[in-house]
Design a protein around this nucleic acid. Structure first.
Lengths: 349, 349
DNA sequence: CTGTTAGCGCGTTCAT
DNA sequence: ATGAACGCGCTAACAG
């Protein structure tokens, strides 16, 4: 037989006070005689009383819980954001319900509806698509977007300055005299992919360089896409020597391709198979420079990595959390507020 | 003025039925006349009614939420576990409250207490330390451990077969005639670190090889530790040529060290600085073989990687979730149940 | 098939 | 400083 949990009523009874008094002690209400408070506290530990926050939530209409919807969990980038959010929100006594949308709009909508039904105090979404009209259904629960922006519904958002990050990185090599920079990017449905491409294009334009169609490849932000596009680029007639890669996972895939194609990768005496490598490619590999987005622990060790644009991932999480907490607190100032955080550059080695 | 959400009562009133009937429709109860059900459903959409699950939870004493406590979020390994858990649990209509313990026992305890107060239906913990006596306070809420075991309190658990994984990997090279295998491991307070070390030691023993003190280094599963220990090993008088590294992050750190020390890492013409590299180390780098634990996307591309022991991360999450769901369902069969999942080997390239 | 009623455990007036 | 009483929104008997 399970023994049921003690309730406020049990505590009140045993301590010989009213439930109101117990509740006051629980909530640190000042107008309780110290001795009474002490007595109640002792009774609480004696009975092993544990508050039922569900009941409290029903009464107060606050769950002290926020929902986060992310496209996937097995993604260092997203989890750095989530980590930043949790850091900040935990300080205020909030918990996080984490949901995955699998980059699927319907799933995102379903999870959002569920969060509302669970009565979360606020929601942070890393959008899985470019469309956000379903976010409307969150109202009046505060909603903040992070990392990506959707265009069809006004939302508070915390984003990296993708355009400037890409622009400055690409322009830095253009300025040094590079006449050609290849581009490997994600699906332009996503705001970040679009903005980074625009930054790239603007940098070439500023250097009076043409956008060469064959140098510009779009995929989907996943490593397999990075692998395939890098392969395509390197197998082209005359590969560019500078290549901009739009995110970490594409960079990872590209790195895998390059490692497979690089002769002197390991010194452990394995036989090299040269059958796939032609003169052109070998030539291209001689002087390759990769400029990439996202500063993950390993990015600087990927082959040919020469410049990395770092997003302040954890900071973005912090800011999103703080903005959400403000909104939860009732501050509607400047809605919709879009916060852009600067990227920074890092040179590997 | 915010317009308040419609409640069951509002729906009942407008539809001209009782709240009980509305509740029945909401819960798919069969004994409702189809026409009435239809009417109620229409009223629900008309009013934009959204169920308040907090109220339902208070009544049913089920939140359809489980808690997960993980040491940190910015950790691919843990997040793969969490991902597996969520996959499985979402199918049954459950949500996940995710908490970080920061590998801190007190924090773990605090989060656990909070989850209990939030009345979650079950809890999954990736323990942050070797002690689990505080898990007792979860009872009677079902609790399942994943990845790591604590010794001082009996719990259901889903774990990898760390001993066998390490043993077989190390023994495979011993069998081929290797007389010496170095070891870089995590804090033996953690069950996985202990088990992997034991597997390593057993493999040497089976090959009649001595445990050489200088070859065996312990750290803490983080990349900086892997970096430092690999450095220490490689700078020793006569470094071993085979090295077993106990987890991905140590492997990552070790790889960073090795990449820094490897001459021909990039072909992009940068000047090499040879000042740090002496003859011994160069010699050691000539024929190094690394055996490592955890199959992350990049592990096989780390330098000198020759054998990888892969844990079924997502599968572990699935199994843990299913076990927890069983326990939530009331099945207490075979408690405490400890499920060991086999590792597999992968040879890079 | 449907309605009435009684809580779930808490916070919160409004008295005293 | 304290207590009595009500209700948050919902489900679950029980009656009919």
């Amino acid at each position: 037989m399970e023994k049921k949990n003690a309730t406020v009523k049990d505590v009140a009874q045993k301590a010989g006070v009213s439930t109101a008094t117990v509740s006051r002690v629980l909530n640190g209400d000042k107008k309780v005689k110290p001795e009474t408070a002490q007595l109640v506290k002792e009774t609480i530990t004696q009975l092993g009383y544990r508050m039922n926050r569900v009941a409290r939530s029903l009464k107060t209409n606050k769950t002290h819980t926020i929902g986060i919807i992310a496209p996937e969990f097995s993604n260092e980038f997203f989890m750095n954001l989530v980590s930043g959010i949790e850091d900040e929100i935990k300080k205020e006594g909030y918990s996080v319900i984490l949901c995955s949308s699998r980059e699927n709009r319907d799933e995102e909508e379903a999870q959002l509806a569920l969060l509302i039904e669970k009565n979360v105090d606020g929601i942070i979404i890393i959008p899985g698509s470019s469309r956000g009209s379903h976010f409307e259904s969150a109202a009046p629960t505060p909603l903040v977007l992070v990392d990506r922006l959707t265009s069809d519904y006004p939302c508070d958002a915390v984003l990296a300055d993708n355009f400037t990050g890409a622009f400055e990185a690409v322009y830095s090599v253009v300025q040094k005299g590079t006449r050609r920079v290849g581009f490997i990017g994600g699906d332009r449905q996503l705001s970040t992919a679009r903005e980074r491409y625009d930054g790239y294009a603007a940098a070439l334009a500023k250097g009076d360089l043409p956008l060469r169609q064959g140098d510009i490849l779009f995929g989907d932000y996943h490593s397999s896409s990075g692998y395939n596009l890098m392969k395509k680029l390197m197998e082209s007639t005359e590969p560019p020597r500078y290549i901009f890669i739009s995110n970490y996972f594409m960079h990872l895939g590209a790195a895998q391709y390059l490692l497979e194609r690089t002769a002197d990768r390991h010194q452990n005496g394995r036989e090299r198979t040269d059958r796939e490598r032609n003169g052109r490619e070998r030539q291209a590999l001689k002087d390759l420079h990769i400029i990439s987005f996202d500063d993950m622990p390993l990015a600087s060790f990927f082959p040919y990595s020469s410049l990395i644009v770092a997003q302040p991932m954890v900071e973005m999480g912090h800011r999103a959390a703080r903005l959400l907490l403000e909104r939860i607190g009732g501050n509607r100032e400047g809605f919709p507020r879009v916060i852009r955080l600067a990227t920074s550059q890092r040179i590997p080695e």
